[in-house]
């Protein structure tokens, strides 16, 4: 009985997810910030992130008939975004003659903005330094570790969701996250 109810609920969720694609403008409005944020944090390049966000929704729009609702709409879109990041990095590596884009974000620019008003200039400086260190360390991480770190700590996704999105098993996700954190911890000056 419970099993039937659960399967009905799953079916309902799938149908809702598929129906959600019907109004694509709404899909873009809802998920664009998340996709853009993930791409920006992964690529550290505003122009590339904006272009790939467009590509992501274009791909989703073209492939909307293949979406069966096995995962949530958000996970599906993030999966497309992750694949785009992978392709982009690969093609960037191959196109070694292309000069570095001027829109690449600098850690110093990033740290110019500090979340909340600090009590003292010293505290603000410390906060800025910390943000710059994290940004720099995350930029230097291997692609998989960076993706897992961004999904967990910027997008606040659960390990299970990340595993589903990346196609890795949860323990591998945890290992990547642990390594990324160890690097960030070292970057901000903590012990290993």
């Amino acid at each position: 009985m419970e099993q039937t109810a659960a399967s009905e609920l799953t079916q309902l969720a799938r149908e809702q997810a598929v129906l959600g694609l019907a109004d694509f403008d709404e899909v873009v409005r809802l998920y664009r910030p998340r996709v853009f944020r993930f791409l920006l944090a992964s690529l550290r390049d505003r122009d590339a992130a904006e272009n790939l966000t467009q590509d992501c929704f274009l791909k989703a729009y073209m492939g909307r008939e293949h979406f069966r609702g096995d995962s949530s709409l958000s996970t599906w879109l993030m999966k497309i975004a992750m694949n785009l990041v992978r392709d982009h990095l690969r093609s960037k590596r191959l196109r070694f003659w292309t000069k570095t884009r001027e829109s690449a974000l600098d850690p110093v620019d990033v740290s110019d903005w500090v979340p909340d008003g600090r009590s003292s200039p010293e505290a603000e400086l410390v906060a800025r330094t910390q943000v710059a260190h994290v940004w720099k360390t995350v930029s230097d991480l291997p692609a998989k570790q960076r993706s897992v770190f961004v999904l967990r700590f910027v997008e606040e996704m659960e390990l299970k969701e990340i595993a589903e999105l990346t196609g890795m098993n949860p323990s591998t996700v945890k290992t990547h996250l642990y390594r990324a954190l160890a690097a960030v911890r070292e970057g901000v000056g903590g012990k290993q």
Binding site: V110, P115, Q130, V131, V134, F153, V154, E156, G190
Partner: peptide, 20 residues
């Protein structure tokens, strides 16, 4: 040490959200 790390990550997230 973990508090410092948590604080840094929290600020990093806020910065990324703001820039985006």
């Amino acid at each position: 040490d973990l508090e410092v790390l948590a604080n840094s990550i929290s600020q990093f997230r806020a910065a990324v959200h703001h820039i985006a």
